[in-house]
Amino acid sequence: MKLKLKIWRQENVDTKGGFTNYEIDDITPDMSFLEMLDVLNQRLINENIDPISFDHDCREGICGSCSLFINGRAHGPDKGITTCQLHMRKFKDGDSIVVEPFRAKSFPIIKDLVVDRSAFDRIQHSGGYISINTSGNTQDANTTPIRKEDADNAFDAATCIGCGACVATCKNASAMLYVSAKVSQFSYLPQGQVEAKERVLNMVKQMDEEGFGNCTNTGACEVECPKGISIKNIAKMNREFYKAKI
């Protein structure tokens, strides 16, 4: 495959970035999108040009590191995947591909396609935990019966990998899907009830302080979420928030 690439290059957070065009061939349809970038980077290194920086780690769709906004969509033109799970067979020979970083004021660009998603960490630190001491006094799981529906909902919410695709794709750069998943995974379970009020209040407060936008229920986030987190969690978080305030 031969491709035309238009890739965002930016030296650091303080510099003004811009697009650079590249042409690349010898790409096979079985390569992942990140492997295609590896091939391009190897060529740039051989030409003594600074390679393109992009986030990646497990390359198995688990860690949530890889970001990239490809041809107008978070993680590229497919549903329920991370960028490392996007394969070149989704493109045609001769295609032009625009690659941008996730764009949100709360996700400043560090270099090229790498963005700082530590706002998510700060939200998590503000309440995304339980403080039950489990060392030495762990109870058997069956001593606390939990409804199957609640257990399923909690588990589904807990599959969020914090990749930031929800923020990237939302027209408002809202982080509500992420925050609601982190709130819901605890609020469905009895173990999460102890700090339920503080959790939702602190996490929403931190989310607002980070400067994310407001959810307008377009549903784009759940379409692009690689783990299929449902926006039902946002309604759940709203209820938890009102309960905590009232």
């Binding site: 625009v98 709360s106 994310f212």
Partner: peptide, 13 residues
């Protein structure tokens, strides 16, 4: 909400 995005995307599907 528009301020939260900052610089917009060149291509947004």
């Amino acid at each position: 909400n528009r301020k939260s995005r900052g610089r917009g995307y060149t291509r947004y599907a």
